[in-house]
């Protein structure tokens, strides 16, 4: 199942901030974590992630710091800030409301079968 872009965009900020609460990560590691958490349904590219990280950094929700990769190369890591944690808490509340509302609407509807075709 492929998640539509609008939904991916709406979830992007809380997802990245939530992932960073587990510890600092570099870009590709964040992408891999998104893939793992969504069971492969959310496939982001660096082209989607980095504009988001830059935006979150401008807003003060994350900060970047230079680390060193296993190969000894300088690599930029991202860490959540206190402001980012506040923002994440706010987003969590909003998503809880949305999630509860959807669950109530859908509880009496038949569960759709999982669609897997068209998946690379």
């Amino acid at each position: 199942m492929r998640i539509e872009k609008d939904l991916v965009a709406a979830a992007a900020t809380p997802l990245v901030l939530g992932i960073l609460t587990d510890g600092d990560l570099y870009g590709y590691a964040i992408l891999k974590r998104v893939g793992e958490l969504s069971g492969g349904s959310m496939q982001w590219t660096d082209g989607m992630l980095y504009p988001l990280l830059h935006r979150l950094e401008r807003l003060g929700y994350v900060t970047s710091l230079w680390g060193t990769s296993d190969a000894g190369r300088r690599r930029k890591h991202y860490a959540i800030t206190d402001l980012g944690r506040e923002q994440l808490a706010e987003r969590q509340e909003q998503w809880t409301v949305v999630s509860d509302a959807l669950r109530q609407v859908w509880q009496d509807l038949p569960r759709p079968s999982v669609v897997t075709e068209g998946w690379a």
């Binding site: 570099y26 830059h54 690599r75």
Partner: peptide, 8 residues
């Protein structure tokens, strides 16, 4: 940033 990340 994108090029560095992917090059890594």
């Amino acid at each position: 940033d994108i090029l560095t990340d992917i090059a890594d």
